[in-house]
Design a protein around this nucleic acid. Structure first.
Lengths: 211, 211
DNA sequence: TCCATTACAGTTGTCGACAATCGACAATCG
DNA sequence: CGATTGTCGATTGTCGACAACTGTAATGGA
C-alpha cells in the first residue's frame, strides 16, 4: 500500500479507524486486535500500533497493557466530563478573543450557522459534525493560543462520539444545533465575556450556569 | 533488561529522556537519533520511538517526519502560550472545586507551601519543581474532572521546562515560590472565584489580570 | 565562478518474527 | 462438588533488518 499523498501510513490507519468508530461500525467495547487490523489493511503491526496509540491519546480507544485495546465506552459521567473540559478550553479561548474584539469572527461563523440549517433540514449528521467542528475550531483558532487550540482539537474526536450518542439517545435534536450556535454568535457579537461564558456553558452542559 | 516493576520499557525510556531534558543534559535543539538512543540504552528502536512519540505529545520533543526529532526550543511566546493554557485548565478546575467548597484542600496545600519554604532555603530546584507539580496537581485533582486533570498533567513536563528557563533567566526567584502559592491558598480559602482566578492569572502570567 | 546533477551518508519508515504475558479452560486434588 | 493448579491459545512487547527518503557534498558542464 504505497503513499497516495504525503500522508504517513499511521496517519491513514488512524483516520480510517477513527471514522469507523465515529460511524459506529466499531461500537463501544469492540476489541481492536493489532494483528487483525494489520492483516486487513495490509500494513504492519507497528503501523497499527502507532495509530492505536494516537487514538488512545484522543480518548477513542483504551489500551490495556498486555491485553488488548477496546473502543472506549463513554458513560454518562464521561460525557459530562468531556463536555466540561471542552467548555473550559473554549471559554479560555473566547476570553482571549474578546480581549481583541470578535468582530471579524461574526461573519464566517454566521455563514457556518447557515450551512448548519441546511444540514439540519437534510438530516445529515456527518456534515453537521464537521460544521460543528469547524465552528468551534475557528472560534478557538482566533484566540491565537496554539497550545490551547491543540488541546481543544485533541478532543474533537471525543466530542464527535458524544454528539452521536446524544443524538441516538435523543437528548439532542439536529434542529437545535443551528439555534444553539446562533445564540453563541450573538453573545460573541455582544462582547460581554460573562454572557458568552454562560451561553457556552449551556451549549456544552445544557444546564443553567451555576458555577 | 527485565522488569523490576510493572513499568513498561517505553515508560522507562520516556522517563529517562524527560529527566535528561529537564536537567538540561539534553539542551533545546539537541538532535535525538532513535538508533543512537536505542543502542545506548540497550533497547530496540521501536521502544525509543514510542517514548519519543509520548515526549512529543507532552511538547518536550518535536518530530520532523522523515528527518529527526529535536528537543523543543521554547521561545518567549511559547512560554506565554503554555502558561496561558495551563492557567485556563487550572482555573476551570478551581471553579469546579469552589462549587463544592475547598475547605479540605487548605491544610494539605498549606503543608506543601511549608515544604516549599524549606526547598527555597535549600536552593533545591528539583524538589521545588516536584512540590509545585504536587500543589497544582492536587488542586486540579480535587475538581474530580478526569479529562481536565489529564490535559493538565500532560503539561507538567512543559511547565517544568518553563520553570527552569525562568529561573535561569532570572525572571523568577525560588524564594518567591512559597509566597505565590500561599497567596493562592489564601484566595482559595476565601472562596471567591473571581479573586482565585485573578490570583491564578498572576501566578502563571505574572501580569495584572486584564482579560 | 556558478548552477544543475548525481552520488552518498545518515536517519526514519515499515516490516515480519520471536519472546513474554494474560485469560480461559481443563485437569487434578481435597 | 468446589477450589487450585497446569496447560494452551490468543495477543501484545520487543527486536533486528531492509527499504525509502532527506539533506549534503562531490562532480561536471556552461
Amino acid at each position: 500500500m504505497p503513499d497516495l499523498e504525503h500522508l504517513s501510513l499511521p496517519d491513514t490507519v488512524h483516520r480510517l479507524l477513527r471514522t469507523r468508530i465515529l460511524n459506529n461500525e466499531l461500537p463501544s467495547g469492540t476489541r481492536l486486535i493489532e494483528a487483525s487490523i494489520a492483516e486487513e489493511l495490509g500494513v504492519s503491526r507497528a503501523t497499527v500500533r502507532a495509530a492505536l496509540a494516537r487514538l488512545a491519546g484522543e480518548g477513542l480507544v483504551e489500551i490495556s497493557p498486555r491485553r488488548h485495546s477496546i473502543v472506549t465506552r463513554l458513560s454518562h459521567e464521561d460525557i459530562q466530563d468531556a463536555c466540561y473540559a471542552r467548555y473550559v478550553l473554549e471559554e479560555g479561548a473566547v476570553r482571549a478573543v474578546l480581549a481583541h474584539g470578535a468582530a471579524e469572527l461574526v461573519d464566517p461563523l454566521t455563514e457556518l450557522v447557515a450551512r448548519m440549517e441546511h444540514a439540519a433540514r437534510d438530516r445529515d449528521l456527518a456534515v453537521m459534525v464537521d460544521l460543528d467542528t469547524a465552528f468551534h475550531g475557528s472560534l478557538v483558532a482566533a484566540a491565537r493560543k496554539p497550545r490551547l487550540a491543540r488541546l481543544f482539537a485533541g478532543m474533537d474526536a471525543q466530542m464527535g462520539a458524544v454528539m452521536r450518542s446524544s443524538l441516538e439517545e435523543q437528548h439532542l435534536d439536529l434542529a437545535e444545533m443551528p439555534r444553539m450556535h446562533r445564540d453563541l454568535v450573538d453573545a460573541l457579537a455582544g462582547g460581554d465575556p460573562a454572557l458568552v461564558a454562560s451561553t457556552l456553558y449551556r451549549h456544552y452542559l445544557r444546564e443553567d450556569y451555576v458555577l
